[in-house]
């Protein structure tokens, strides 16, 4: 019972095009929502990228991290859109 594995997409890689951004942001939103709705006794594991090992992490920490990444993604997405708009204007 204790374990429920979450696979937070730890991709720090910032997608370069807008649709990829939307995809990653969508995933990140799902993760945050899932984590926020977890029961307190649930265990959260994070997969070591490029491997098959899952490390146990604290649920609240995972939630905060996911929220931070989500914010970053949103910011990056905003900047990208602005830059593209300016390019179009030019």
């Amino acid at each position: 019972f204790p374990s429920r594995s979450q696979k937070p997409d730890f991709s720090v890689l910032v997608p370069k095009n807008v649709p990829a951004f939307a995809q990653t942001i969508k995933e990140q939103k799902v993760v945050v929502d899932e984590l926020s709705n977890l029961k307190k006794n649930r265990k959260v594991y994070r997969q070591q990228p490029n491997s098959n090992i899952f490390f146990l992490v604290d649920r609240t920490e995972a939630l905060s991290q996911c929220k931070n990444t989500l914010d970053q993604l949103k910011k990056a997405h905003q900047e990208l859109e602005n830059s593209e708009k300016t390019k179009v204007k030019k």
Partner: peptide, 15 residues
């Protein structure tokens, strides 16, 4: 030490 999920093959894990 770390608590991890040890993969058993691509599909199975065990604590």
């Amino acid at each position: 030490s770390y608590d991890i999920m040890v993969p058993f093959g691509p599909l199975a894990f065990m604590p």
